[in-house]
Amino acid sequence: ENVVSAPMPGKVLRVLVRVGDRVRVGQGLLVLEAMKMENEIPSPRDGVVKRILVKEGEIVDTGQPKIELG
């Protein structure tokens, strides 16, 4: 899985990584606000952040790609 998608609709509060960052499985990639709760979205695997496809403040839909890992 190279693309991390939104598990639920919500607002991107914070992006916790930058392009080029090495990430580990379970590491937080971003914080999504859904139903007035903050949810940290974890990396599904070890890898390197290739692209960030969302911006802080953006509203995302379920299944929308957010971060691409290499």
Score class of each variant (00 low, 15 high):
1 E>G: 13
1 E>P: 13
1 E>C: 15
2 N>C: 15
2 N>K: 09
2 N>V: 14
3 V>K: 06
3 V>H: 09
4 V>E: 03
4 V>L: 08
5 S>K: 13
6 A>F: 08
6 A>V: 08
7 P>F: 10
9 P>S: 10
9 P>G: 11
9 P>M: 09
10 G>S: 04
10 G>T: 04
10 G>K: 03
11 K>F: 08
12 V>K: 01
12 V>D: 01
13 L>N: 06
13 L>E: 06
13 L>Y: 00
13 L>I: 13
14 R>E: 10
14 R>L: 07
15 V>R: 00
15 V>F: 06
15 V>Y: 02
15 V>L: 12
16 L>D: 03
16 L>N: 05
17 V>E: 03
17 V>M: 00
17 V>F: 00
17 V>A: 01
17 V>T: 02
18 R>I: 10
18 R>H: 12
18 R>G: 11
18 R>L: 08
20 G>Q: 04
21 D>Y: 01
22 R>H: 14
23 V>A: 02
23 V>I: 08
24 R>F: 12
25 V>D: 05
25 V>E: 12
26 G>D: 05
27 Q>M: 08
28 G>M: 11
28 G>R: 07
29 L>W: 00
29 L>G: 01
30 L>V: 12
30 L>I: 13
31 V>A: 02
31 V>F: 03
32 L>A: 00
33 E>K: 04
34 A>P: 00
34 A>C: 14
34 A>D: 07
35 M>H: 13
35 M>N: 15
35 M>L: 12
36 K>W: 12
36 K>P: 04
38 E>Y: 08
39 N>Q: 14
40 E>N: 08
40 E>I: 15
41 I>E: 03
41 I>D: 02
41 I>H: 01
42 P>Q: 13
42 P>E: 08
42 P>A: 12
43 S>Y: 02
43 S>L: 03
44 P>L: 06
45 R>Y: 13
46 D>E: 10
46 D>K: 07
46 D>G: 08
47 G>D: 02
48 V>M: 09
48 V>G: 03
48 V>H: 09
49 V>Y: 00
50 K>V: 14
51 R>Q: 09
51 R>M: 06
51 R>E: 07
51 R>P: 03
52 I>R: 00
52 I>M: 03
52 I>N: 00
54 V>C: 07
56 E>T: 09
56 E>R: 07
57 G>S: 04
57 G>R: 02
57 G>W: 05
57 G>I: 05
57 G>C: 08
58 E>T: 08
58 E>R: 01
58 E>C: 07
58 E>K: 03
60 V>H: 02
60 V>W: 05
60 V>P: 02
61 D>R: 15
62 T>V: 13
62 T>N: 09
63 G>C: 09
63 G>I: 05
63 G>Q: 07
65 P>F: 06
65 P>Y: 06
65 P>W: 08
66 K>A: 15
69 L>G: 02
70 G>M: 14
70 G>V: 15
70 G>W: 15
70 G>C: 15
